[in-house]
């Protein structure tokens, strides 16, 4: 149905924080979209509430993915705010109010676990499988958490920043940089 009442920006943020209260931590407006942070334990409740709450009705599951922020800012700009090292990202949309909600769920870097939201949004089945293999995140109580894209014997989690593409790695220049360093003083 066409958008009945457009709720974006501060108004949407007010509604979301009023509905979720202490279930979420940090909440802010980000380019007319709502960013909230919640713990893995609260995720299913948060998602279910956002879907049902009057005035929000985020009934549409847009996507689920993850972000590995360990390389944030790179080596040249270490001062850039790093954020959480590893987080699951759920995006919901309200077709009635045109409200976009990004739910950031920081998870443990060494043993990442997150409950599955498939009980609320069936469409998350594949997204969680993709996320699991690409980031090594365990979605507990997912009905079938097998690899979606990668072969079963694939090692590593490709979308983690620690996973380097061999063809893209900067290789050191094989020769000597200074003529003096080279064998024979650069003349050999």
């Amino acid at each position: 149905m066409p958008v009945t009442e457009r709720v974006v920006g501060q108004q949407a943020l007010d509604r979301v924080t009023a509905e979720l209260g202490s279930l979420v931590g940090d909440a802010r407006v980000n380019f007319d979209q709502i960013d909230v942070t919640c713990t893995p334990g609260n995720l299913v409740e948060v998602v279910a509430k956002l879907r049902e709450a009057a005035g929000i009705e985020a009934r549409f599951f847009t996507f689920l993915s993850a972000v590995d922020r360990t390389a944030f800012g790179g080596e040249e700009r270490p001062d850039t705010e790093r954020g959480t090292p590893l987080e699951v990202l759920v995006h919901l949309y309200s077709p009635d109010h045109a409200t976009h909600i990004n739910i950031h769920v920081p998870v443990d870097q060494a043993d990442p676990r997150c409950p599955s939201i498939t009980s609320v949004f069936g469409g998350a089945l594949w997204a969680e499988r993709e996320c699991a293999e690409m980031f090594g995140i365990d979605f507990t109580d997912h009905p079938n958490l097998t690899n979606l894209y990668l072969p079963e014997d694939f090692e590593g989690n490709p979308l983690r920043k620690a996973f380097k593409l061999p063809t893209r790695m900067v290789k050191p220049w094989p020769g000597a940089k200074d003529p003096e360093e080279a064998a024979g003083g650069g003349r050999g």
Binding site: S65, A71, F72, G74, T80, H91
Partner: peptide, 13 residues
């Protein structure tokens, strides 16, 4: 973006 000259992450739905 992390402020760099390439996308830090680009997820496509």
């Amino acid at each position: 973006s992390d402020g760099g000259s390439s996308p830090y992450r680009c997820h496509v739905r």
